[in-house]
Write a protein that binds this DNA or RNA. Sequence first.
RNA 1: GGCGCUAUCGUCUAACGGUUAGGACAGAGCCCUCUCAAGGCUUAAAUACGGGUUCGAUUCCCGUUAGCGCUACCA
Length: 485
Amino acid sequence: MLRVRFAPSPTGFLHIGSARTFIFNWLYARRNGGAMILRIDDTDVERNTEASLTSIYEGLRWLDLGWDEEYRQSERLALHRQVADAIFQKGLAYRDFTPAHTGESEKSGAQGTWLFNADMRAMPREESERRAAAGEPFALRFRVPRDTQHTVRFADAVYGDQAKSTADIEDFALVRSDGMPTYHLASCADDADLRISHIIRGQDHLTNTFKHVLIFEAAGATPPQFAHLPLLVAPDGTKLSKRRHGPVVSVTTYRDAGFLADAFANFIVLLGWSPKNDREQMTRQELIDAFSLEGINRSNAVVNFTEEDPFDPKAVWLNAEHIRTMPAEELSERLLPVVRAAGHSIEPLKMLQITRLIQERIRLLNDALTVADFFFVEDLAPYDSAELIPKKGDAALALAVLERASGVLATAEFSHDSLDAALRAAAVEQGIKPGQMFEPIRVAVCGRKTAPPLFGTLEALGRETCLRRIEQALGKLKLQSEPRQ
RNA sequence: GGCGCUAUCGUCUAACGGUUAGGACAGAGCCCUCUCAAGGCUUAAAUACGGGUUCGAUUCCCGUUAGCGCUACCA
């Protein structure tokens, strides 16, 4: 049975790199009929926060991919201690009574080449037992083989065969002096116990894997398959971090800006993975069908954000593609809460009508608020009356056009085709180009020069609103041409 | 410092040793058009550097350089 896991530690909001790791795991599980496990790695009591846990669930819920089993490491401490003890009993770990360090400059003083503390490593069993029994705190360290020239090996599905001499691996801690397991121990103990078959995680763990292989072997377990993912980095090349890059790397930032979860997943999965057939826009199912570990790259991928724009242009483009290709009904349903959250009241039927007009004009859901604002408000925001004057025309022409339009709209049937025909006919009668006719009307009803197609807009706005806004425009123009004495 | 990993257009990427080094986003231009979009067409833009191996290297090997990661009783 194929089993993969996503194991975030609740020490900050869910960032996009973590979300990506989750998605890769999920895709792999779904592609191969395996199980997806969510495990909260909360052994660092000091740094865990409730807010972070909330953020993780919030982000994962938005992604809407789900998982099959869920565990919390802090509830599995007995298992971790049991594994640590078993390793200790085999003589593969020893007690280190060195006081816990507050800073971190001490032992790595000699050029950071610290491997182990000889006194502690070689301490006689009796002394170790005696001091432990006396209640002296100690950390449990892995006894990395030193005498024989030992090389630790494992095959990584992405980076290939990996090997490292034990001479370059320090005696890392398994259990802290407060009795809590370290990440390495807890992670491996759980992975073994939960029968994880494939560990797919960030490349920042590639080097740690040698230690993990050592732990698995010491615990008498077969190490799972490993697949390390290239890291997501900022434009300056450094690893994405919550600390340095702030909310631009938070999943909820994407959600709040109006990204579709599927579009986000589509984008993020293309960072470090390729279907190798030039396909870019893909649905969730298409991603599942196309996914394989072989398509994963080895070099880090830049998330191309800037200070002005927190989102990679490709992410925005993909979102627009997903928006364009989804059924208008579905898009409308997603737009409704966005519009209502902005304080507008709008009926579902009207929203659908508007959606058809803006579907290929918005890139993020929130764009609806700016692209279609004039549909949602009673009164237009103030605009310069000069905007009403069409190209190659003057105020007098604008006045004439709007008066004529007012007459036409008062009687015409309010449907796209009728409005089209009537307004074009009016332009001919006026001896002007259609564009010159439409421009003043568009500004009068929308309050600006760029807007969705005119006839559909008029239709959605309704006769009453159109006429009222044209009257108001007329008023502005008259005020302008007849300045008060 | 030690150890590990990586290196194709600005960005994401494609290319079982033989291609005019392909695609996408972003940029520029043109077309379409009631504005804006969308769409179509065109354009500019890359194999880090130096050695090998080979008839032939983006591709394989070595070195250099650069970047990243790990080097905690964080994960």
